[in-house]
Every structure is written in C-alpha cells, then in structure tokens.
C-alpha cells in the first residue's frame, strides 16, 4: 500500500500538555459548530456524504506524481474539501481523516490530535474557503488562481502553526524549526496548489453545478471571507518575521506571557549563535515576503472592484 506519512502529523510526546489541551479545546468547539451547521443544511444525508468524502481525501492522498530523484508530490486535500463541500463540511471531513490516520496508522498522536486537526483541518478550511469565497462569482481563471494560491498558503500556514506549537512546547528552537518547516512546505504547498487547481478544473468541466456561486455562498457566510483574509495576512506576515527575526517574535511571546504558559523551559532572548542547517532561510523569507506583498495588492484590487460593483 502506498502510504506516506506527511511531516505535518505531530506525534504524541512532542507537544506540551497545555498546548495540546488548548488546541483540543479549540478544535472541539469548531467541530461541534461544524456538526450542528452541516446537520442543519444536510440533515441525515450528512453522515454518508461526509464519510464517503473523507474516504475520498484519504484515497486521494495515495495519488502521487513523480517529481524528481525518487521524491514525489502528493496531496493533503484540506483546501479542496473546503472549497467544494463548504468550510463546515470540510472541517468534518478532515477531522475524520486525521482521526483515522492517528488511530489506525499512528500517523499523528492522540493527545495532540486536537492540534493536528486544527492545523490541517480547520486552518486549511479557513484559508482555503475564505480566500476562494472572495472571488466565487468571478471568471474561471480568477477562481482557479485564487484556489491554487489558497491551497499553497494553507499548507504553508499549517507548517507555520505546527512549528510555533513545537516552539511553544519547548521542543524545537524557533530559529531552526520555522525556516526548516517553511522551506519544506513551500515546495509541498506548490504540489498541493497544482493538484487542487487541476482537480477543480476537472470538476468544473464535468459538474459545474457543484461550484456555482450560489452554492458556494450558501455553504459559508461572509464571515469566512473576513476570517480567511485576516488569517491569511497573519500567516503571510508572520512567516518572514518568524524566520528572519525570531528574536522579535520570541520577545513578543515573552512579553505576552505565552512562554510561561506553554513552555516548561522558557528560552531566554537568543544568544548570537544559531545553526542555520538550511541554506534556504533567506530565500524562503524573500519568497514569502514577495508573495505576501502580491497577495495584499491582489486583495486590495479585488475588494476595491467588488465595492465599486455593488454601489
């Protein structure tokens, strides 16, 4: 069986208990909301649809395409699920997938499952659907481009959040884990974006009714747009900050009392030595920064145009 554990599934023992429980609480409340929302819109049809779609994500993760030198890109699916099925349904589908991966394959822990669900199911739904919803009534090319970007960003944001969790738990050093995780996931995210866009293009061709504007609008309100944009901007600004000047972030967290909350061994303000194992640090910072600037520009233009239209 082709089954590759993805580097985003945190195993038990790597997160501090406090951090693990906080994210379990956050994930559980979102799951509860998602259950009641989908139950209202789908009724008893909820269970078969969500279950089979979760099996789809699981099976689709086996589809891989050779890239180079024995490595292959494969697919996580959080953004695609949220775009096609709606954000609440997407959250449930990804929760089921992550639960089975953790329970059955030990790919991700049980106590830290809340954090895994939050990173890979909820964050991806917020960014994936939120950004896609901003352009839901527009031309095919715009929608696909935004969907691809959302898929890429959701992968990178998951990696960022996972590294922040590891850092707050005192497991990893911030100045190492953030560039390393971001560097890897900038590439994984590119594969994710390509597959998501092409899968959407295919679905659009054969079942355009699944992707029309009314259906998208009815599956999640305008709140998703604002949350999606806010979270995306946060991720775009935090990534270069965290990899370029970890001292700053560390100081902010220290001032806000996060370090005492999460860490049994608070790191003091960093001394001068670091080990940049990855040469990609500067590169990833530059790319993330440039992309961030482009996103902001694009969003400003889009928001401006939609405002003009409604007037």
């Amino acid at each position: 069986m082709v089954y590759a554990p993805a580097p985003l599934h945190i195993p038990d023992g790597f997160l501090n208990l406090v951090i693990a429980l906080i994210f379990w609480g956050l994930a559980a409340s979102m799951i509860a909301a998602a259950l009641s929302k989908t139950n209202k819109s789908l009724g008893e049809k909820q269970v078969p649809l969500m279950g089979v779609m979760a099996a789809f994500i699981f099976a689709a993760q086996m589809l891989n395409f050779p890239v180079a030198g024995g490595t292959s890109g494969h697919f996580l699916g959080g953004a695609l699920a949220a775009i096609v099925l709606g954000p609440w349904a997407g959250i449930l589908v990804m929760t089921a997938v992550i639960a089975v991966q953790g329970l059955l394959f030990q790919d991700g822990g049980l106590l830290v499952m809340g954090a895994n669900i939050f990173n890979m199911g909820i964050l991806t739904a917020v960014i994936g659907f939120g950004l896609y919803r901003t352009v839901s009534g527009r031309g095919k090319a715009t929608r696909l481009a935004v969907a691809g970007f959302a898929a890429w960003l959701s992968t990178v944001a998951s990696a960022l959040l996972a590294s922040l969790q590891l850092w707050l738990s005192g497991t990893s050093r911030l100045e190492i884990v953030v560039p390393a995780m971001l560097g890897v996931h900038l590439l994984i995210g590119a594969g994710e974006a390509i597959v998501t866009v092409l899968a959407l293009a295919f679905i659009e061709q054969t079942r355009p009714d699944l992707l029309n504007a009314e259906k998208t609008a009815s599956s999640g309100g305008r709140g998703w747009i604002y949350t999606g944009i806010a979270v995306s901007l946060l991720a775009v600004f935090l990534s270069p900050l965290a990899s370029a000047s970890p001292d700053g972030l560390e100081r902010v967290a220290g001032d806000m009392g996060f370090l005492h909350l999460g860490q049994s061994a608070p790191y003091k303000i960093l001394p001068d030595y670091t080990i940049p194992i990855l040469g990609g640090t500067a590169l990833s910072t530059i790319i993330a920064g440039a992309v961030g600037a482009l996103v902001v520009l694009g969003l400003v233009v889009l928001v401006g145009r939609s405002l003009r239209k409604t007037r």
Binding site: K45, V52, A59, A60, V197, L198, A199
Partner: peptide, 30 residues
C-alpha cells in the same frame, strides 16, 4: 512535471466525482 501533475489533478477530480456520486447512491440505498 507539469504534465504529470495535470494528469494527477484530473485523477483527483475524477476520483472526487466518482466518490460524490457514489455517496448519493449509497444514501438512497440506505
């Protein structure tokens, strides 16, 4: 690589539609 990724993307889309339609049939059967 782009061509191969496109094939994989179409496969994912195809798989999605087959699953989606299957869930409909399953629901009716149930």
């Amino acid at each position: 690589v782009v061509w191969r990724a496109r094939v994989t993307g179409s496969m994912a889309g195809q798989l999605f539609l087959r699953s989606y339609e299957r869930s409909d049939r399953i629901y009716n059967a149930m």
